[in-house]
Design a protein around this nucleic acid. Structure first.
Lengths: 261, 261
DNA sequence: CAGTGGTCTAGACCACTGG
DNA sequence: CAGTGGTCTAGACCACTGC
């Protein structure tokens, strides 16, 4: 049975005048795209189950195997989580075991659970206008409204991370310091539950720097202490940047851990 | 047709007295294991093609689909590279486009190709005995023979990375500074070609530090310059550590780039 | 053209979950 | 027990490579 009349099975060349790229797209990729659209549109909310493979196969008029391969890729991208016997669920940050998914700072000795939960102190939370340095990575215009949050994370009792966050004002209208505090640290979970913004991917740029006086005071360290500067841009679906974050990490008792493959 | 009499299709519980973990292992995982063994044993050398899916399917008495899934995972682990129409090849570092696979330092502006090839200067290459700090991560005993190499990488003309390497003496017997220089920088390629050691995976621990006097002199920077300390352990097949590397990175014009998923 | 990996299907059965 | 994802098979056809 040939590929049924889906959106556009294509695969046949020369459908129009200019065929710069043949742009052959396998069926399962198209299915993946359709499922992705539903995820973006919020048809299924984070934590919920998506329809079963059988149902999706019927809905899209393809075989279960094809849906399976599409979902396999979504699972590999951490957009979806498979649970045998139960179903496939929209990935979420609002689960204890996926907390800290993006935090790569770990203690030199022992493991992350040994030092107890991180303690957050919010220093500042205010509306501001995007400077060029903030606007660029967030794909905004200079002067657009942004929310700026400054906070300190203490690990095992000592202030270890000084963090500045910039969020596009439009998407996060109404966010308050109280809200941040309420979720005590599960920031991305809050973004999902309160604003429907799910972070999917992030990029970090790391440098070694010395703190200025303010920063040194907040972290209670001498100004000669070298720190890790970690600049993160986090993206929602469709590669839209939704958060800029600059962290200063103390690395005397912790280190940034990375795996290369 | 039920799973034929492979090594051990198992899946049946209570084969012995204590069934702590049922340890059900799907067929394709077993096949993956067998292929992995051949890779480790060197049956197929880096860069060479492995047998076709059809042939492997015949050899192992399973369907092509099962072999396919096994190879899919090996490809996802970067142990093998698929090339449509040509075959499946053992991954190698000895290819231009996979150079720098583990080097995450990139220029703040422009891209890595803009600054031309990195220039290596070998400062030292000598036999030594493993201190406890070196022996531990390399899974050696204190006092075991190791090779120590110190070198400087210059990017765009300025010395940017000061690197110390420690290699287990046994596996790298006979390595000379000339050999290192010959491959001008394609270090992991040299390991493959000269010693049959293929690096598969690595872990890095990153801290911010200040250089001591020697280090500052070698990098031609003031001692107050904060640097990235990048400690890497690289592993061959079977998770055997084969290299310890400590790099000091200047991050005034470059940064360590990382992607979170 | 033959040989390779890549896609798609259809159907059987297995493992796990929950009522 | 029914429903879910997970494995395995067998066969057809497509896309790409190189002779």
């Amino acid at each position: 049975m040939p590929p049924p009349p889906l959106p556009s099975p294509d695969g046949t060349p020369s459908d129009d005048g200019l065929a710069a790229t043949p742009a052959f797209s396998p069926l399962y990729q198209q299915i993946k795209g359709l499922i992705l659209q539903s995820l973006q549109a919020g048809d299924w909310k984070p934590g919920e189950a998506i329809p079963s493979e059988m149902e999706l196969a019927a809905r899209y008029r393809v075989s279960q195997g094809t849906v399976r391969k599409a979902i396999d890729e979504l699972a590999a991208d951490n957009l979806v989580v498979r649970r045998q016997g139960k179903g496939t669920f929209v990935a979420t940050h609002a689960e204890h075991h996926v907390q800290y998914r993006f935090l790569k700072l770990v203690p030199d000795v022992g493991d992350i659970s040994a030092e107890g939960p991180a303690q957050r102190t919010i220093i500042e939370c205010r509306k501001a206008r995007a400077s060029i340095d903030v606007a660029r990575p967030l794909a905004l215009r200079t002067g657009d409204p942004v929310l700026q949050i400054r906070r300190i994370l203490s690990l095992g009792g000592t202030p270890t991370i000084l963090e500045d966050l910039w969020l596009p004002g439009q998407a996060f209208k109404g966010l308050t310091a109280e809200q941040m505090a309420q979720y005590h640290g599960a920031t991305y979970a809050m973004f999902e539950l309160e604003f429907g913004v799910r972070m999917v991917r992030a990029e970090e740029k790391i440098k070694a720097v010395l703190p200025d006086e303010t920063q040194a005071n907040l972290l209670q360290i001498p100004m000669q202490t070298p720190l890790l500067s970690v600049e993160r841009v986090a993206f929602t679906y469709k590669d839209i940047p939704m958060e800029l974050r600059r962290g200063l990490y103390r690395t005397d008792t912790h280190h940034y851990r990375n795996e290369l493959n």
